[in-house]
Design a binder for these strands. Structure first.
Lengths: 347, 347
DNA sequence: CTGTTAGCGCATTCAC
DNA sequence: GTGAATGCGCTAACAG
C-alpha cells in the first residue's frame, strides 16, 4: 500500500497511469474500502451524500473493479458459462443473441464453449468453466456424461438446459417439446390432404432433438392411420447442401411421394433448391415442410411452411430466470417457450 | 487452513465434497504448494518423480485450479475478450468458430460481447472486459471512440482488430482489403462483358467495410472507363429479405441494367430470390455478384458468383498469433488473409 | 449507517 | 530442484 497511496495525487498531476483500486477510490472519497465496495454493489444502507462522494471519486479516477479479486473474495463470479453444440447452425448464435440480450445492462458476461455435439467435450468444458466459479452454466439438452452430470449437480452454480423440455432438468429447462413439434408437422400435412408422406433428415446421433421430432412425426402419422412412406437420411450434420442432396436421393429411390417433412429448415431450403433445379412444382408436385422458421425459408419464392421455434426467446428467458435468484431453487423448473406452425406456401 | 487440512482424508473416506485447492494437492503429494503450481503451469525444472506424484494427487482429488485466484495473483487471466458487431450475420459466428478453433487445446476461454455496430457500446464492452484482465481483446475494424482507443492502447493486453487491413492497427490486424475486394468485383464483371452495372446495398453507417467495397467497386469500374449506372440502398442491416426488396426497388426505378453488385451474399441471395419470383433469367437478363462466399449462395439452383472472405481463418489466425506472445510486440503487424473470386453461374 | 479485521487461492519474488 | 514468505484487490463477517 505504500506506493499506491500516492496514486490519487499522481493521477491528478497526470503522471503514472497505474490502474486505480478500491483503496484509491476510498482515499479520494474519504471513506473505507468497504463502503466503496457497498456503493458499487448497491448493498446495505448508504447515506446519499456518501454515495455521491464515492461515485464522484470513481468517475474521477476512472475506476473499474478488478473482477478476479471480486470473484476470489466472494467465491463466485459474474460469468455465465454458455455451452453450445455448434456455431455453424445459425440456430445457436440466435440462442446466444437471446442470452446476450438477457444479460444486457447487467455486469454479467458470457464465457462460451462449443462441444461439436460431443458429450466428452461438453464434460471438459463444464469442468473448465466451473474453474471460474460462474454464476450459472447454460447448456443444451439433457444428455450429459455421468461425470458431467455429477459436476453440474454437485456445484452450487445455477444450471439451465436449453432447447428441450421432454425430460427432467437439473435446475431449469427452457425450450419446447420436439416430440409435439413433430406431431404438429404430421397433423399439418395430414390436414392439408397429403397422404404419401416421406422424411428427409440429417445425423441423429449428434442431434437428439431431430430424432425426437422424427418420432413425433411418426406418432402423428400413426394417429391419422398413415404410414411414413419413405425416408432418407444423411450421416452429415444438417446444411442446405445436404438437404438438397438428400431430397434428390429420396426422390431417386422412391416414387409417389406427395410431401416431405425435413429435419429442419436448412435441410428444407436445400430441398427447395433441388425442386427448383429439377423443375418440380412446389407444392403441386411435392409439398415441403421444415422446422425452425429461419429467415431464409421465408424469402424463398414460395415461403417455406415450417414450425417456428423461438430460439431468441429461449436464450433470453433462461437468463432472466437464472438472474432472478443466484441460488438454485429446491425444485427444478420447466419453461415451455412453445412453437407454432408458419403457414407458408410449400405445404 | 484448519478445516481444509482435513480434506484429503475426508475425501478418501467419501464424506465432504469440499472443492480441493492447491494446498490439498500439495499435502497429498507431500510437496509445497509452490511446486504444485509449477507442475501445473509447466514452469521451471521439476524432478520427474515429483511431477508424477503431483499429477497423481491432482487426478485423485479431481483438482481444478481456481481461475480467479490465479488471475488475481498474476494480474492477468486466461480470458480472451471477443467483441463482435453482431451475431445475426452468420459471418461473425464463423469468425467466432475460428477463434474457438484457435483456442482449442489451450486453457484460454472466450468471453464475448456484441456491439450491434455501435462504437459507444464497444467502448463499454472494452472497459467491462478489461476488468477481467484478459490475455487479449479481439475486436472488429479500426473505428473506435477516442476513449476506447486510449483504453486499448493503455492496457498491456494484446489487441487484435479483425476483418480489415486498410488502416494502422494498434497491435495486430487480420483480415482483407475490402477496397481491393470491391475492385476485384468490378474487374470480374467488366471481364465478363457487363457494362451496365448497378449496386444494391445495405446500411453503410454501421458497416464501414461494405462502404469500402462500394468505393473499390467504383474505382474498379472507373479504371475500366465505366460508370455505376444505378444504385439502391436500404437503411437496414443486410438480410436476404432486404436484398430481395432492394433489388426489386432498383429494377423498378431503373432500366437497362445488365449486372448488379451486391453489398454481400445475404443481399445477393435475396436478390436471386427476387429474380426467381419475377421470372428474370440469371445471368442472361441480369447478372448478380455477391461478397463472402456463404454456403447458401452455393446451393442456389445457379451457384452465386461471389468473393470468398475467409472468416474462419481470420479468427483462427488472429488467436494463433496472439497466443504466440503474451506481450505486445514493439511494432504492429498486419496479416492479409486475402480473398478470391468464386466463379459461380450468376455472373 | 460505517469502519475493522480476515482471509479467498493462487503466483511471484526470494532463499536454499 | 524445492520451499517460505508475501500480497494481488476485493468481499464478508463482525462490531459499533
Amino acid at each position: 500500500m505504500t506506493d499506491s497511496s500516492l496514486l490519487a495525487e499522481e493521477r491528478s498531476s497526470l503522471s503514472m497511469p497505474e490502474t486505480p483500486t478500491l483503496a484509491h477510490v476510498a482515499r479520494l472519497a474519504g471513506v473505507s474500502e468497504n463502503t466503496v465496495s457497498r456503493v458499487i454493489r448497491d448493498k446495505g444502507p448508504i447515506a446519499t451524500e456518501t454515495r455521491r462522494r464515492v461515485n464522484d471519486a470513481i468517475a474521477q479516477l476512472g475506476y473499474v473493479p478488478n473482477r478476479a479479486a471480486g470473484s476470489l473474495a466472494s467465491s463466485s463470479s459474474l460469468i455465465i458459462g454458455v455451452i453450445l453444440p455448434s456455431l455453424s447452425n445459425i440456430v445457436f448464435p440466435e440462442v446466444l443473441q437471446g442470452i446476450n440480450a438477457g444479460l444486457a445492462g447487467t455486469p454479467y458476461r458470457p464465457m462460451i464453449g462449443v462441444t461439436d455435439y460431443d458429450l466428452e467435450s461438453e464434460q471438459h468444458l463444464i469442468s473448465s468453466l466451473l474453474a471460474w466459479q460462474p454464476a450459472a452454466i447454460i447448456t443444451t439438452g439433457f444428455a450429459h456424461t455421468d461425470t458431467a452430470r455429477r459436476m453440474l449437480e454437485g456445484s452450487r452454480v445455477r444450471i439451465a438446459e436449453l432447447m428441450d423440455i421432454d425430460d427432467r432438468p437439473i435446475d431449469l429447462a427452457v425450450g419446447l417439446s420436439h416430440r409435439q413439434a413433430g406431431r404438429a408437422m404430421a397433423r399439418h400435412l395430414v390436414n392439408r390432404g397429403y397422404s404419401k408422406i416421406a422424411y428427409a433428415g440429417h445425423d441423429w446421433a449428434s442431434d437428439r432433438r431431430a430424432y425426437a421430432r422424427y418420432q413425433g412425426l411418426r406418432e402423428g402419422l400413426g394417429e391419422a392411420g398413415l404410414p411414413l412412406v419413405a425416408e432418407c437420411r444423411t450421416e452429415q450434420a444438417s446444411s442446405t447442401l445436404e438437404g438438397r442432396e438428400t431430397l434428390a436421393r429420396l426422390l431417386a429411390e422412391n416414387t409417389g411421394i406427395d410431401a416431405v417433412a425435413f429435419s429442419n429448415d436448412d435441410m428444407a431450403v436445400g430441398g427447395f433448391m433441388h425442386c427448383l433445379a429439377a423443375n418440380i412444382s412446389v407444392p403441386e408436385d411435392l409439398a415441403l415442410i421444415g422446422f425452425n422458421g429461419l429467415e431464409i425459408g421465408q424469402v424463398l419464392p414460395k415461403p417455406l411452411t415450417t414450425v417456428l421455434s423461438n430460439r431468441f426467446a429461449i436464450g433470453k428467458t433462461a437468463v432472466e430466470i437464472l438472474l432472478e435468484d443466484t441460488k438454485r431453487p429446491p425444485d427444478a423448473r420447466i419453461i415451455d417457450t412453445g412453437f407454432s406452425i408458419i403457414e407458408g406456401a410449400t405445404a
